[in-house]
């Protein structure tokens, strides 16, 4: 299931130091950018994720063009991909000022070439086109994204599989192995191991995976009746009292 929004606003894993930065005025102090960037790399190594802390980095970049660091931005966007269908990716892009960095970098800036690819990947995830996502992700074009960035992000591919799994859980009661495999980009033994880890049962004779029952894949017809609350009637009742 999805974590509650309060955990998105304040992840339980967030250290106090970061909490003070994110919630106070110190978040505007450019000299704190290092702390937040270190925290981002900590998230990359540990599979933790803290959207608001990462947005705080982009906020500092927005106000202080000299801090611009393309690697950090790309890593933030890569992390944000793993939290689809939540709006993290677009919220991050919204903070990127469309201007070139103030200081020329030593190396060519990888960000302008990678950004359109990242946006495409995000759109595919958002539209639940998981097979197309994997095809694009594994394409030659995105070699530099894989070799320079996502390879460092511990558990990146599994995190994307989680995105697919969450959607499948909501939509399916039973799903064919082949179809699920194409969403997870897994086959044979890898697939079986992954499904087993999820605790889902496979009917080997039919090749169909049973998705555990949950509130979203359990449907029922209901009739919503009008619910009148007392405050709605307060004016009428109080008027009736006056009239007497």
């Amino acid at each position: 299931m999805y974590p509650p929004p309060s955990e998105w606003v304040t992840p339980p894993t967030r250290p106090d130091l970061i909490e003070n930065l994110v919630s106070g005025v110190d978040r505007y102090n450019p000299s704190n950018v290092g702390i937040l960037e270190d925290y981002l790399y900590h998230q990359i190594r540990t599979q933790e994720y803290d959207c608001l802390a990462n947005l705080a980095i982009l906020k500092l970049y927005q106000f202080n063009a000299q801090l611009y660091n393309p690697d950090v931005i790309i890593n933030i966007l890569v992390k944000a991909l793993t939290n689809v269908p939540f709006p993290d990716f677009n919220l991050s892009i919204a903070l990127l000022d469309a201007r070139s960095p103030a200081a020329p970098l030593d190396e060519p800036d990888p960000f302008p070439t990678l950004l359109p690819h990242l946006v495409s990947l995000h759109n595919l995830l958002q539209q639940c086109r998981f097979p197309a996502f994997w095809a694009l992700y594994r394409s030659d074009e995105l070699e530099s994204l894989r070799d320079n960035y996502t390879v460092e992000v511990v558990g990146f591919e599994d995190a994307i599989r989680d995105v697919a799994v969450r959607t499948v859980k909501a939509t399916f009661q039973r799903i064919g192995k082949k179809r699920l495999g194409s969403y997870l980009d897994l086959e044979d033994a890898d697939f079986d191991a992954y499904v087993e880890k999820l605790g889902w049962k496979t009917d080997e004779s039919t090749g169909v995976v049973e998705v555990p029952s949950n509130p979203d894949n359990h449907i029922s017809s209901t009739i919503v009746q009008e619910d009148i609350k007392l405050p709605q009637l307060s004016k009428i009742i109080s008027h009736a009292m006056q009239a007497v």
Binding site: P85, C128, R129, P131, T167, V168, A170, T171, D216
Partner: peptide, 10 residues
Amino acid sequence: MVQQMMAVKS
């Protein structure tokens, strides 16, 4: 189409 249905569900 099945993928689109997942998008509709989302």
